[in-house]
């Protein structure tokens, strides 16, 4: 497992199709579309598509107080802040995992198949 340091996380790391591998819902927004998404597509032009339904925008920001990256997600005029608690590549480098902790208390683990190793400077 290779952890990508928070200071090195760029848009390229987040771009792409992510499947929801696991979720821990919060009591504060259990019915939100984002809570039931099975796939997140973070497109390069800040466009965000959720499956089975939902679209909006996303941005990679830095929480200044903590000096940690987070994602600002807006879907259906609702916005969420999701702290990146971990971004790592598994040992055989085939998959990247993204752990997100939302300000509502929800937690998601997203997984992306790596077809471009160059994204991570691995070759």
């Amino acid at each position: 497992m290779y952890n990508i340091p928070f200071s090195n996380i760029t848009l390229n790391h987040i771009n792409g199709d992510w499947l929801v591998e696991s979720r821990q819902l919060s009591t504060s927004d259990p019915t939100a579309s984002i809570a039931h998404a099975i796939k997140f597509i973070f497109a390069a032009d800040d466009y965000l598509e959720l499956l089975p339904e939902g679209e909006g925008s996303w941005a990679l920001k830095t929480e200044e107080t903590m000096n940690r990256p987070y994602l600002l997600i807006e879907v259906f005029n609702e916005s969420w802040k999701a702290l990146i608690t971990r971004l790592f590549i598994n040992t055989d480098t085939r998959y990247t995992y993204l752990n997100l902790y939302f300000d509502t208390g929800m937690e998601l683990t997203l997984v992306k198949f790596n077809n471009k190793y160059t994204d991570f400077g691995l070759n």
């Binding site: 929480e63 903590m66 608690t85 300000d103 208390g105």
Partner: peptide
């Protein structure tokens, strides 16, 4: 150690929110 650090970050993030 990692879990503890994560927990600390989550608490701080939530508190800020």
């Amino acid at each position: 150690k990692t879990s503890y650090a994560d927990l600390e970050a989550k608490v701080q993030f939530r508190t800020l929110a």
